[in-house]
Design a protein around this nucleic acid. Sequence first.
RNA 1: GCGGGAGUGGUGUAACGGCAGCCACGCCAGACUUAGGAUCUGGUGCCUUCGGGCGUGGGGGUUCGACUCCCCCCUCCCGCACCA
Length: 966
Amino acid sequence: MSQSADQPIVEPSSGDVPPHRYTPALAQKIELAWQDRWESAGTFHTPNPVGRLSEGFEKVADRPKYFAMDMFPYPSGAGLHVGHPLGYLGTDVTSRFRRMDGDNVLHPMGYDAFGLPAEQYAVQTGQHPRITTEANIAAIRAQLRRLGVDHDDRRSFATIDPEYYKWTQWIFLQIFGSWFDESAGKARPIDELVAELDAGTREPAPGTNPSARPWAELSGVERRKVVDAHRLAYLHEAPVNWCPGLGTVLSNEEVTADGRSERGNFPVFRRPLTQWMMRITAYADRLLADLDRLDWSDSLKLMQRNWIGRSTGARIGFSCADQVIEVFTTRPDTLFGATYMVVAPEHPLVDALTAAEWPSGVDPRWTGGAATPAEAVSVYRREASRRSELERQTEGRDKTGVWTGATAVNPVNGRELPVFVADYVLMGYGTGAIMAVPGEDVRDFEFADKFGLPVIRTVQPPEGWDGGAWTGGGPMINSANDEISLDGLEKAEAIARITEWLVARGQGEATTTYKLRDWLFSRQRYWGEPFPIVYAVDGEDAGLPVAVPPSMLPVLLPEVDDYSPKTFADDDADSAPEPPLSRATEWTTVELDLGDGPRKYRRETNTMPNWAGSCWYYLRYLDPGDDSQMVDPELERYWLGPRGEGDVGGVDLYVGGVEHAVLHLLYARFWHKVLHDLGYVSSEEPFRRLVNQGYISAYAYTDERGFYVPAAEVVEKDGQFFHEGNPVNREYGKIGKSLKNMVTPDEMIGAYGADTFRVYEMSTGPLDQSRPWETKAVVGSQRLLQRIWRVVVDEQTGAVRTADSEPGEDTLRALHRAIAGVRDGYSTLRFNIAIARITELTNHLTQTYGAESPVPRSVAEPLVLLVAPLAPHIAEEMWARLGHDSSLAWHAFPEAEERWLVDDTVQVAVQVNGKVRSQVSVPADADAAALEAAARADEKVAGYLAGATVRRVVAVPGRLVNFVLG
RNA sequence: GCGGGAGUGGUGUAACGGCAGCCACGCCAGACUUAGGAUCUGGUGCCUUCGGGCGUGGGGGUUCGACUCCCCCCUCCCGCACCA
């Protein structure tokens, strides 16, 4: 790292360098010229089969389609560093290769522009977030253009464009306007539900009709509420993640494991609030099952599987006074071992369960030192809600809890089970209540141990098990009553038998539960999509949500004076959200005629979360200017439709960071499935193939005091690192300002040109692999391009120096081997392989023809085409100088001829006892016997074989001979 | 703790179960040079008594043959984390 990153390479004076050498200065000139030409010629305009972007389609009608896409960037003010373009270049090389190889390629780019950083900047400066955001977009757009990417710029948009978020709102209305039909396993329009309820062919789903009176007897408002409770987008009062420091609520996915906000790292508290939710849980099974049909990495699929968290087991009801506590367990087989119960602090039955007073002789450990159960429970609940997850962690997993004073009954044996409140049971999973089986559950054992509760083993632990919960297998014990015995059974059989018994008695049922929760969809922010929802101000239906009709979209984000949500002290758990839009009083109150005459309405003042815009942007690329529909179904079928029976369809290559493994990718899949169910898209999944590009990290250096010093100023000497003469420590981490190791593509383009930068980034490893950035290694890519340039162009005159001569056979072999290897590298996203094969061919040509004799045109031209996807500007320039007057972007990619991939004679290794001892040259088609004969004839081999017994000979034609001696 | 991925020269990496290290950076030497962070050519895994020996995190196994397949262990990275 001795070379400074931001210090430009000193240009040698012109007298010393041949005038037409491929220098950084020449690269700049070539690149800017070709970027202008591509733009003015519309080289990368991709024709649609129909509609306003269909011009020129007849020329590509017979081509297969290929849709390559990047996760679009959030336009932050910092711009791009050298890590960002890795994925963009990966899709760019791929799309350029596929286009040359005969596909109709769609490679668009857009901007994910709603969100917190722009809003926070706006809060600080008072400048409208749109202004900063659009400036940032312009800056990144310029950076991308300078990299030479082949995006179809007519298809670019930002999620903040009203013409775009109009359709985000429209999709929200579709989701709001539908329900999940469990029997059909899919979403259907809500009108069909109403019709079925009216006709009496369907009953309201469980839990949607609190009055429990028949549909026919319900009032209009009651019916509205029943219907609203079915919707896929619904208002719900539930404990949410309230972040006072940000002044907004967050989805589960946005809260870190230690209970803080992913953005800003503020404490997050659980508190009940009425918020918009999306019923993603209805799709849990399909989201899970369809992972098997996707070409994604196993690790990514696993992350989604774990997030969905499906587990099968049983729901069991335990009587407790006049209540029933429902629990979920994956181990109903251990029911005989239940010795107490636990409900989560937020469990709705807690108050009803809590007894009036402690019985005499209550164990002091159970009371939390309180005089009454009510006091104990209330103190414990308050503490639990205030305790951040971080505190829970630092306190270890020490079990805490108090007894409610209540006792439930184990249905298998009538045993009395004290019911505790404890925060190791989470309201968000299962039913928020458990039966505790300390004999077979580690957590229950810890709690039982601390609170002096009995342990009953129901699975025989192995010999010598020294206590604690036994969670492994073994025969059941202690598990019999008058009606049923599980003793001696193994787990699976025991689960089946006890579940059957519970079902027969109406005390339980087999069930499946998920970790996945419904998606919290409200944010108390300014810089997001307004909801297309209003609430009547007066009348008996006041406060019920009403859809703004599609004809009134978009609901424009109003101008406000103050963009900030009301934020609170970090730890003010009792604060309540106040969205910025609630202060835009002229906007919030409207008079609308929504079918029953003009009425006064109040607008929804929450906005949608940042993920909304990124849930469907791939659909909008197909024609962002279509004002009449979200997406033309014919375009969707062409670009995303299934390729055949059983295919899920979707984007052919989607490249982005693994940080979106569960958030964006799960939400987008969910929306897509809803749109599929409602008939708007033919594909079942948005992203057929997904690749997570690796990260680029860089070295960073700290001085003796531990402060970071600018990495660019550090010099290496004999393996030690120094900054201004002082020794520094080397670390390895993220590129960025904080580690003072920022390197931008602009600096690299300035020093070497975009093509060199592209080749370097692609040469450091397969796309999905993380790698270190090393500025000093970039020069190697520059040299490669220089050598290729020299194959085609005379450095002294600038004239083409190829000849119409015939290449020799060894050159043809080198060429076709390179073609085959480069194709393989491009099609498997191992661009480093492609570059190595190009380098080999270039080295071969340099050595074969030297500086004097011209390289045959029939070899130089394919070489230029091979390089084109990686280094398109220099390739176009050479192509043009070779006399072609149209862009090579659409020229056919070279194909390897089989006959040049095989040699007439091959070098075959000869092993003796598995060790290579010699080489023999044999005809490529020599059989095993010929191979052996040739090997035996070899002098060195003969020496090894002399006087030894050959026990066995392994001869693999074309590969090797192995003599196994006795 | 559970789950996943990865360990190959000084560095980034490459090798259908078949000659380990392609290609590049760096380094060394040479050419051209007043000069070289330019360019070109050659060399470069380690050890060596120059015969050869040893080498893909460690240890076993399968095989004529293992970076590759199987078992155990170590290290690093990532994800989840009281999920009943």
